[in-house]
Each structure stands twice: as C-alpha cells, then as structure tokens.
C-alpha cells in the first residue's frame, strides 16, 4: 500500500516536472517544484538544490523553505559537509546519523543537530561525467535511505539536470556554464524581488517569497517573470497583500 501510494506520488511528480518543461519554462520554477516533490516523496523534512557557480562554489538555488536557518545549514553542507563530498566524488552520500558523523564536518554537524536534523542524503546532478550540483535531503529521523529511495532521488536529480540544460541541448561547455548561470542569476533576481516585497509590504523575507510565489501562481507567471515585474515596479505586491502576515497563510 505504501509502495503503491508512493508510486502514484512519483508519477504525479514526474508529470508535474514534465509540465514545467514546456514552452516558457522557468528554471527556478522547475527546481523549486523538484525540491518540494523530493521532500514529499522521500518523506524528508527539508530539501535543497545547489548548483555550481562560475567561481566553483556551490550556491543554493532552491529550497523547501526560505528560513535563514535552513539556508545556513545548506550552505555549511556545501562548504564542508556531505553535499560537497557528493559534489567532488560525483556519488551519492548518505549520512544515516549526523550526530555520529564524528569530526568530519564539525560546523555542519553542530548546526544540523541544532535544527533537529538527524540524517542527510546528497544526490549528484551529473551531465556526461561532469557534476553540476547536488540535491540534498534532510530528515528528522535517524536512518539511511534504502536503495529504492536512493534510485528515486537520482531519478529526480536527473530530471532536474535535463530540465536545466534542455533549452539549448548544447555540448559546449560555455553554454552549459551559461545555463547554470542563468539559473543562478534568476535566483539573484528572486532575492532582489523578495527585498522589494519585504520592504513595500512589511513582510519577512520568507513571507515575501510566499507572496511572490502566490502572485506568480495566481497569474500563471513564472517566478522569474513575477520577480522582474516586482523589481521594475510594474506590479505592487505591497498593496495586494494588504495586512502583514496574510501572504504567508496562503502557501
């Protein structure tokens, strides 16, 4: 039964991801959907996707929450943690019990524990022998992912990779780099838009992101398009959102 349920969820997830790959697909939307589906299907409480930037650093482009604390732990993970190990080796890394991970990644271990995470799994995003990033899942339960789950995580990460690069389908390295860059730059745009919404509607950054997303969904726009409209002030979410806090409750 549980398997059947998951099968159904998984199918739905792939259909939803395939949907995002249509005409005016937005890479940030795709990755945002992916991390959410991933957390749901694999019954983990938080997920985040890191991509390699032009300076060789891993940057968080999508996560299940915009809370600063989660972002912190994701970045520590990418600095010295299972994520960077997954990235450098190109292989999945599972840490079934973070508390017992010893002193391999002290800062990461401490922060993850402080936030109540007990286990973490990192799946590489690979393209023809190159690693472009990693998909990370955090759980509040101790235990490694079973083989079937590892395969599911890899399948989802592969979809993300294809989605990320399908637009031009190019084999040229510069173009691959530029595709990654486009995703990272969209993320910057979204951060700037969060600032605009936060300031004009007096919302927290988290609420501002929720308001931006809701606006994009309600108007059938990509997140990037919505962010651009907010930044060039052709849309004012401040007046739409109204009272403080309202945006957050619609998520």
């Amino acid at each position: 039964m549980a398997d059947f349920m998951r099968e159904a969820r998984l199918n739905r997830a792939f259909v939803k991801l395939a949907d995002t790959l249509t005409d005016d697909f937005d890479v940030v939307d795709l990755l945002q959907n992916l991390v959410e589906q991933c957390a749901e299907i694999l019954d983990t409480q938080a997920a985040g996707l890191m991509l390699l930037d032009g300076l060789g650093e891993l940057q968080l482009v999508a996560s299940t929450s915009e809370e600063t604390t989660l972002i912190e732990v994701m970045q520590l993970n990418a600095g010295a943690g299972p994520c960077v190990e997954c990235f450098t080796t190109g292989k999945p890394v599972t840490v079934g019990d973070i508390e017992r991970s010893g002193d391999r990644w002290p800062a990461f271990r401490l922060e993850a524990m402080r936030q109540g995470f007990k286990s973490v799994h990192a799946t590489p995003m690979r393209l023809r022998g190159q690693v472009l990033g990693a998909l990370n899942m955090f759980s509040i339960h101790v235990g490694e992912l079973v083989a079937a789950d590892v395969a599911v995580a890899q399948a989802l990460a592969d979809v993300a990779t294809i989605g990320l690069l399908q637009e031009r389908g190019s084999r040229e390295k510069t173009l691959v780099a530029a595709q990654l860059q486009q995703a990272l730059n969209s993320r910057i745009l979204i951060e700037q838009a969060k600032g605009v919404v936060s300031e004009s509607a007096e919302l927290t950054m988290d609420e501002a992101f929720a308001a931006l997303r809701k606006y994009a969904r309600d108007h059938n726009l990509t997140l990037t398009t919505a962010a651009t409209a907010v930044i060039d002030r052709s849309v004012d979410l401040g007046s739409r959102v109204g009272a403080k806090g309202e945006a957050g409750s619609h998520v």
Partner: peptide, 24 residues
C-alpha cells in the same frame, strides 16, 4: 563573500530600491 551573505546583499538591494524609489 560567502554565498549566504550574497543573498542578503540582493535582498537589501530590493529593499533600498523601494526606499529610494529607484532602479536596482
């Protein structure tokens, strides 16, 4: 500059844009 700090820089840019009613 760590990536996490950069997020704040971009968010602050958005806030200042509103405060000064100007461009990014």
């Amino acid at each position: 500059v760590t990536p996490a700090m950069r997020r704040e820089v971009h968010q602050a840019t958005g806030m200042i844009l509103v405060q000064l009613d100007t461009t990014g």
